[in-house]
């Protein structure tokens, strides 16, 4: 942020002819509110979290410095490992939604005038309150009266207690996660698709390529930068999953909660239920590092599959 505000001063005056004043002042003035907001809302909380992670912070009252104590405890805490495991599993499941999104985006592109309707339909979950989503899916997954088990019963399949049985909860949440992320992914991928020149398809059609072949040989490679972008976003969002657990398990005293905590839920529980803010902060920092590593890894890997034309 600082170089953004500093640079303009060195730039020549604006494009407008006759501008005698350097534009630096104005730039600073215009950027200042956003910068202040960014510092107040992101930089400061981040720094205070970082500091707290090295402290023992009781609910109220003064904090004491404990060095790396929180981090040492964290490494030996089976609950933390389990929560990371749950978050990782959830992330993997949600990633399976990306091929689905690519296929759907390509199909919607074919839909011609109906496109907008499909986009709106798929986008609706994105603008729906997580609480409402949680309530609806809780009903769908209900073991006794749920919609899913009702539909399964048509095919003679015995339903399960999808969110009350810890064997299934993370998978059940994964499906909701795919559904929730689809809207945003379709928008990004849809924009990517429209940037692919029609001429490429026409040329390949002349060469005798069918629809399926076109999809795998043209659409997917040319769309790969968008797919990469969507993957990055999906991994970050999935590792931060919290609301579904909160709404579907905690607020209703679901006994599956103990086995289904995600890492962000554990953070919340430590910091805001058990009054261990220092420990919670350490979890948050570790999560940040994990997300950074996951993202860096993806940037490394993209070289082998993303095609920038």
């Amino acid at each position: 942020m600082t170089n953004v505000t500093a640079k303009p001063a060195r730039r020549p005056a604006g494009r407008r002819a006759g501008g005698t004043q350097p534009s630096g002042w104005w730039a600073v003035a215009f950027v200042a509110p956003a910068t202040a907001g960014l510092i107040a809302l992101y930089v400061w909380p981040f720094l205070s979290t970082l500091v707290k992670s090295f402290q023992d912070v009781p609910a109220f009252g003064p904090a004491t410095f404990v060095g790396a104590g929180n981090y040492a405890n964290l490494l030996g805490d089976a609950e933390v490992w389990k929560a990371f495991g749950n978050s990782a599993l959830y992330t993997v499941i949600v990633l399976l939604g990306i091929p689905l999104a690519v296929a759907l985006a390509a199909l919607i592109e074919q839909a011609g005038r109906g496109r907008t309707i499909y986009r709106v339909l798929f986008f609706l979950p994105v603008v729906t309150l997580p609480v409402a989503i949680g309530m609806v899916w809780r009903f769908i997954y209900n073991g006794d009266f749920g919609l899913l088990n009702y539909v399964l019963s048509w095919f003679g399949v015995d339903g399960q207690y999808w969110v009350a049985d810890p064997r299934f909860t993370i998978y059940a949440f994964g499906v909701v996660g795919i559904w929730m992320g689809l809207g945003i992914n379709l928008i990004i991928l849809g924009a990517g698709l429209q940037a692919i020149p029609k001429a490429v398809y026409e040329a390949s059609a002349l060469d005798g390529a069918g629809r399926i072949r076109q999809f795998f040989r043209i659409t997917v490679p040319l769309l790969s930068p968008s797919i990469f972008f969507v993957t990055i976003l999906t991994v970050i969002a999935a590792l931060q999953m919290f609301d579904l657990i909160f709404i579907m398990l905690r607020s209703v005293n679901n006994t599956a909660l103990a086995d289904s905590k995600t890492i962000v839920y554990l953070f919340y529980e430590k910091a805001f239920v058990q009054f261990e803010q220092g420990y919670g902060a350490a979890i948050a920092i570790v999560l940040l590092i994990v997300i950074m590593i996951a993202t860096a890894l993806q940037f490394r890997l993209q070289k082998s599959w993303v095609f920038y034309g």
């Binding site: 209900n142 006794d144 209703v252 679901n254 006994t255």
Partner: peptide, 9 residues
């Protein structure tokens, strides 16, 4: 069962 009571309080 506990599972049923988790689904419906």
């Amino acid at each position: 069962t506990l599972k049923q009571l988790s689904d419906t309080e």
